[in-house]
């Protein structure tokens, strides 16, 4: 869901985040303003420089005057808004979301190439997820090693679609898509062909770098060796969008 382009004359609004007075441009989202003011809001699918997706729900916040929880990444600030980012209820919901992600596919951090450099693993620790209360599914998922340079391991994928968005919006190749529903939902390359057969992939590696987990990695990496580098993104994103 791309956000509409900023209006030519942008007003400044004031609001409260966790009781702290802050001011912001009215075209900013809650997560942007929170992070500018060093209020950490956890997120997984949100990535500065890519369009907003709003799927992982980790960034939900409470807003005075409404019972609905709203995703901080896809909600714009308004004048007088009062935002709570870290109530006990929110912490509980976030822990549940993280637990469900661990239970749905197969995450074995101790033998994962991304061990120690994984956003999901760090998120679990930050949210205080020291165990998963729901039963693990232990369903089998495929690994696609057909690409010359990279590997896709569906066992580790959290369906954040960062790969889909970066490939479409920044690289312009649109190799990735999402297919299927529920537990069958998965990311695919081209028309669900092996990644190595893809005619559209330029092998730029951007999807691998933005993937928050060990789902997209370089070949030849062993346990804990896969590190990611997101530095390219803000720069390329600005160039792409002519800012």
């Amino acid at each position: 869901m791309p956000l509409p382009a900023p209006q030519p004359q942008v007003r400044v609004v004031t609001l409260k985040i966790d009781g702290q007075d802050v001011s912001a441009r009215e075209d900013e989202t809650i997560i942007e303003v929170a992070r500018e003011n060093r209020v950490p809001i956890p997120s997984l699918c949100y990535l500065e420089g890519l369009s907003v997706w709003g799927a992982c729900r980790l960034c939900v916040v409470e807003i005075a005057g409404t019972d609905r929880l709203l995703a901080a990444c896809s909600t714009r600030v308004t004048e007088g808004m009062q935002v709570i980012t870290n109530s006990e209820r929110l912490q509980r919901y976030r822990r549940t979301i993280v637990e469900l992600l661990f239970a749905e596919r197969n995450h074995v951090c101790s033998v994962c190439v991304s061990n120690g450099h994984c956003e999901l693993q760090t998120l679990a620790q930050r949210c205080g997820v020291d165990h998963v209360k729901v039963p693990y599914r232990h369903a089998r998922y495929e690994v696609d090693s057909s690409h010359d340079l990279f590997r896709l391991d569906h066992n580790r994928c959290v369906l954040c679609t960062r790969c889909v968005r970066v490939c479409d919006e920044i690289e312009g190749a649109h190799t990735w898509d999402v297919m299927g529903r529920g537990t069958d939902c998965r990311v695919i390359t081209d028309l669900a062909r092996p990644w190595g057969d893809s005619g559209s992939c330029t092998s730029c590696g951007k999807c691998v770098q933005v993937c928050p987990t060990g789902a997209l990695v370089r070949h030849g990496t062993s346990v804990g060796e896969m590190t990611k580098d997101l530095k390219f993104l803000p720069y390329l994103s600005r160039r792409r969008h002519g800012q």
Partner: peptide, 11 residues
């Protein structure tokens, strides 16, 4: 104790 302060999955 709150072990998340000192350890995590895979640590």
């Amino acid at each position: 104790p709150d072990p998340s302060q000192v350890t995590k999955f895979g640590a």
